[in-house]
């Protein structure tokens, strides 16, 4: 009997695979370690889920496909001009929103969604309150190019944090503007804004904050390696997992969910920097657990 069932199950599987096999094309218009890591993880994750996807990888638009997974903003720009359903991944919210505006008029396809790289503001603020419960004054260095900070401001206020914003006046005044911001702040909350934070200003910013005994909260592992105290971020692998579940849903329903923030995330801590600044910080795993608990508690409210 058991054997029978097994054979039937196998047959069913084979049949369903054949019937529902979805052609997914991963579009990589740009080369980059994170992009290829995503592509690799996407394929692996699909295989692990026994998802019957036939996955292609290409750097230009395919002739035919059921779903385009566009990796990065360049791929997104290309994909959104096609007639295929599109899932955009590994893009910043600011980038995607802007792109949408630019090509809205001649947007041919209306089945698209995205998974942002940005962490939701609530989660970013949770990292501060969980990792540094005694901190009240948060320094935020912004420039004319900075993305919209409305939701971050709101989340900070909800957590009773005092946000001190400093506008970068010009590249020449970076040192001075930073100095005056650090006078008021207990931590510096870094945001993805290349006018302020780039590889040549990073030395200046990290050294100046370190001299003032103020930690930086970063937004990527590179920031933590460079000398930030900690950061919350999602890896390409985590995003791939989320993308696979979107693809599965698309296979089942023919629809894509609304644009999402990453659901899974990681925290990275630089213990050497913490110790040197005399900060007693929990390890990354504990912080993730406590942030998840905070989300649950916040959801119940």
């Amino acid at each position: 009997m058991k054997r029978y069932l097994f054979v039937i199950a196998l047959l069913l599987l084979a049949f369903s695979a054949q019937a529902k096999s979805l052609r997914v094309t991963v579009l990589l218009a740009e080369e980059g370690a994170s992009y290829s890591e995503f592509a690799r993880s996407f394929a692996a994750e699909a295989a692990r889920n026994n998802l019957s996807l036939s996955i292609d990888q290409t750097s230009s638009l395919p002739q035919e496909t059921d779903l385009l997974v566009a990796v990065g903003i360049k791929s997104a720009a290309m994909a959104l001009n096609s007639r295929f359903p599109v899932l955009v991944v590994l893009v910043s919210k600011a980038g995607f929103v802007k792109l949408q505006h630019q090509i809205l008029d001649h947007l041919e396809n209306n089945i698209f969604s995205a998974i942002y790289l940005d962490q939701p503001s609530r989660r970013q603020v949770d990292l501060i309150t969980v990792a540094l419960p005694n901190v009240k004054n948060v320094g935020l260095f912004v420039s004319a190019q900075s993305a919209d900070m409305t939701s971050l401001r709101k989340a900070m206020t909800e957590s009773r944090l005092v946000l001190h914003e400093q506008q970068l006046e010009s590249d020449e005044t970076l040192h001075r503007d930073l100095h005056s911001l650090l006078q008021k702040s207990e931590i510096l909350f870094a945001i993805p804004d290349a006018q302020i934070y780039n590889s040549s200003t990073m030395r200046n910013i990290l050294l100046e904050t370190y001299r003032s005994g103020i930690p930086i909260i970063g937004f990527s592992p590179a920031y933590v390696r460079a000398g930030a105290l900690c950061a919350v971020f999602s890896t390409p692998e985590q995003i791939a997992k989320q993308a696979v579940s979107q693809a599965r849903q698309f296979a089942e329903s023919g629809r894509l969910s609304a644009i999402q923030y990453p659901s899974e995330f990681e925290v990275m801590v630089n213990p050497q920097v913490a110790r040197s600044l005399g900060i007693d910080i929990k390890d990354a795993a504990t912080l993730v657990r406590q942030m998840n608990a905070a989300t649950v508690a916040g959801g119940r409210k």
């Binding site: 980059g32 903003i73 910043s92 980038g95 290349a194 990527s220």
Partner: peptide, 9 residues
């Protein structure tokens, strides 16, 4: 259009 480079830089 801001790229995602900043997250991977």
């Amino acid at each position: 259009v801001p790229s995602e480079d900043l997250y991977f830089q």
